[in-house]
């Protein structure tokens, strides 16, 4: 078990998970998680299938709330120093500031423009100039502007798979969140599209904190500053990526990284 205090801490962490247990009904999915995610860094969550990395990710923007029996049974999740399960937390505000990109691209059956503007619209922004501006900025950040600027009113479902996923990323960053959660964003894409998205992630680290779930360890090495390794609902090790891949502290981590995992 890695000691959370061993993780480098320069400033106050943007996301902090303290002694958290999470369960679906009587089934415990995550146990005693301690994690502090730094500002403007990319943190990767890795681990074998079913280890709970997606569940952990979904804890951060409370996407698990929809599952009736799912809840945090112990500990707390703090975003920007605020316990997100507090009574006075407005879920919509939380999700505005903690964006999310899903495994499969899921643009709405609307135009490209409306997709990107959606987040702003639901948060009450109706000024056309503000919207135009935000859409352009988001599309530029997602490296889509040059490809799509002439057909913003085209249907989003007419785009290619990679473009669709980048559109979803643009949609998620249009509200200028502080944290961007990415749940295996490249798993359904070809290598070229994957590369483009990885480039984006690098750039994003300048503006926000990214937490990415990936099953591809090379990707974790390529994009992340820190890596957390989960196994059977427990956080086994959390350290700077280079360190972990070169000199894993835990035996379990080592065997997983070497592929001798059984």
């Amino acid at each position: 078990m890695s000691n959370p205090s061993s993780s480098p801490a320069t400033s106050a962490p943007i996301v902090e998970i303290r002694d958290m247990d999470f369960s679906y009904g009587s089934k415990i999915a995550l146990h005693d998680i301690q994690l502090a995610v730094e500002r403007r860094r990319v943190t990767a969550l890795i681990g074998p299938s079913g280890c709970g990395k997606s569940t952990l990710l979904r804890c951060i923007n409370r996407m698990n709330d929809r599952v009736p029996s799912a809840r945090v049974t112990r500990g707390a999740v703090l975003v920007k120093g605020k316990n997100i399960h507090d009574e006075d937390v407005d879920l919509t505000q939380l999700r505005k500031q903690v964006g999310m990109v899903f495994q499969k691209s899921n643009p709405f059956p609307k135009s490209i423009y409306e997709n990107v503007a959606y987040g702003l619209r639901v948060h009450g922004e109706n000024n056309v100039e503000v919207l135009d501006d935000a859409v352009e900025r988001a599309l530029r950040s997602a490296a889509l502007w040059d490809e799509l600027k002439d057909r913003l009113q085209a249907h989003a479902l007419g785009l290619s798979g990679g473009q669709q996923q980048r559109l979803c990323i643009a949609r998620a960053i249009a509200t200028q969140p502080d944290v961007l959660l990415m749940d295996e964003p490249c798993s359904a894409l070809d290598p070229i599209a994957t590369l483009k998205i990885e480039e984006l992630i690098h750039q994003f680290a300048r503006d926000f904190s990214v937490i990415i779930v990936t099953h591809n360890m090379q990707q974790a090495v390529r994009v992340s500053d820190y890596t957390a390794f989960l196994h059977l609902g427990k956080l086994i090790e959390f350290s700077p990526t280079e360190l972990m891949f070169e000199r894993p502290k835990e035996k379990l981590t080592e065997s997983y990284l070497r592929g001798t995992f059984s």
Binding site: R18, L78, G81, K82, N83, I84, D90, Q97
Partner: peptide, 20 residues
């Protein structure tokens, strides 16, 4: 949530919304 945990002060709530 367990009460033993330190809770941030209310004025520093970054997720306040006009809920009503």
């Amino acid at each position: 949530m367990s009460a033993s945990l330190p809770s941030s002060s209310p004025e520093a709530n970054p997720f306040a919304g006009n809920q009503s």
